[in-house]
Nucleic acid binder design. Sequence first.
DNA 1: TTGTACGCGTTATCAA
DNA 2: TTGATAACGCGTACAA
Lengths: 343, 343
Amino acid sequence: MASITIIDIARMCGVGVTTVSRAINNHPDISEETKAMIMQVIKENHYVPNNSARNLKRSASKTIAVLIKGITNPFFNRMIQVFEKEIQRKKYSFILQRVDENQDEIEVAIELEKEKRLKGIVFLGGYFSHSKEKLDQLTVPFVLSTIGMTPDYDPQEYSSVSVDDYKESYKMVDYLCNLGHRKIAIITASMDDVSIGKLRYEGYKQALADHGIGLNEKLVYSMKENIESYSMENGYVVTKELLESGEEFSALFAVSDSLAVGACKAIFESGKSVPGDYSVAGFDGLDIAYYYNPSITTIRQPVEEIAEETIKILFDLINKKITHAHKTFPAELMIRESTTGKQ
Amino acid sequence: MASITIIDIARMCGVGVTTVSRAINNHPDISEETKAMIMQVIKENHYVPNNSARNLKRSASKTIAVLIKGITNPFFNRMIQVFEKEIQRKKYSFILQRVDENQDEIEVAIELEKEKRLKGIVFLGGYFSHSKEKLDQLTVPFVLSTIGMTPDYDPQEYSSVSVDDYKESYKMVDYLCNLGHRKIAIITASMDDVSIGKLRYEGYKQALADHGIGLNEKLVYSMKENIESYSMENGYVVTKELLESGEEFSALFAVSDSLAVGACKAIFESGKSVPGDYSVAGFDGLDIAYYYNPSITTIRQPVEEIAEETIKILFDLINKKITHAHKTFPAELMIRESTTGKQ
DNA sequence: TTGTACGCGTTATCAA
DNA sequence: TTGATAACGCGTACAA
């Protein structure tokens, strides 16, 4: 079922393909009447240009791709909206590309860059541990947004926007300590994780240390690997285990709000209450942390600002105003109902 | 910065482009050694084939696209996972394409079909009200998954998988009535909505009627148009309004779980309780309905089955085993803590 | 088993 | 303002 092409349209209109191309792409060098006539014929015959051919021929296109690892993460929802809005405001088009958990985002990016003649790339989620050699294959500017980075990276090699996960995590645990809690459990990423999970765990450790509290490894739990990471279910299952361990604790810090929700559920099911028996704290500032009952104390990341700054830096990069940039935003401790003082 | 092409590789290897192409695409007609040698050179030089050129040349590719309207909807998360798994199992590749709220999914589909030489399409979310003429421009099989359809459509023209939103909604309201509730408020889609929101509203009306309860329009609320639809915030804002109206009611049926969560929050903030003062029911069967406190009575859609059947039908279509099919799954009333009998 | 040459549908160059 | 034609990078008859 041979599809209709630009040549067919040209024939039908009795003009050359160039003219048709001009009509399609709003080129200036074409008279209004021929253009109108051509557009009419195109509409009548439902002609749709083939994007592969366009991309192949085009030397450059005004498009930005956002590569996102873990698209199910509600934390990204708002960010995506902002990205789209900002990118459209710059008259660029916007491609959202999902990257599978066990897929290499750089490879996807390289492929996409060639295929779509990208102008820039935003990486969202996951963590970054690619060789410099690989990174160098990316010939367009890119920005890492809310992504954990291995510290041995040369900051000159990339740009990033995020909160200081270490510091903010410290802030939360410090707050819990100041409330009088000394037995504070944590649900964090797996121990070999090198991303934000790790950073948040480090903040936890440091805060404890600064309050003269020794690390009790029996209160340190990692998410289950076989359950979706950072999910409510994961928080639920892990907290059940924690409760059943019999190890005493008065507060629980989950490194994401979803985990915290699952944790609360597990506590309720054991017949205990939040914050009466256990204080529970989350991280991220998702809507659900506010709407949950009790509302959950959390660290609210300034999602809009992060997203806006990401795009700003990306365009500065594109316009060669800068060669790289790193921006960290302060996050806000939202004290809500799920945490209370310990007598 | 001219990118490296297949010709460069051919030159470097001292072979023809055909041979390189064969190496890349695992063609049989090539000796193991030359293939290994070529792959080596490719790796060393970081050669990545240009997808646009490939798609342009290829007459057909084994790929399925899933077009999703409202990617932020957590209800789709699980479905996407199943889609991906099933599609990979068939040795097809999988493209997830987001469609903007005010974008025409059919146009996106037509473009994508040409660009990627698709074998089939799944439409997810939104509602369908396109002219037959437009639908006919789609030359590959497609399936509508959990999508509301204007009833005046010829069922011979398309395929679909979903639950019976009317019946399931009826089931919920019937249950509430049997609990003794007679003043049942509803939060539904806007009145000019023609999708599932409408169907669920119709089920509500019918159930009331069958219980001899007249429709009180002061208890019928639509989501706010200027807030993300089906969101917690929307449920919260609308319920606040409902509570402030002073109109008496004992149960509230929100047509999505997220709305129900927001509704609960509004009720708590007014100093009332769930289900003590008001019973609250949702729809969809999201995780959060289970994890919320109180856990929320809902209609659980069999997400996995729906997704699996969608793919099954799509492949039957592709293999010309059938010309169209419609499947509706029964959903399950999950009775939980948020609803209770009315004295 | 390997290589040459053409065509996929479009846009850019250049001449008319 | 228009049109012929050469790329864009790849896959594949067909020939060797």
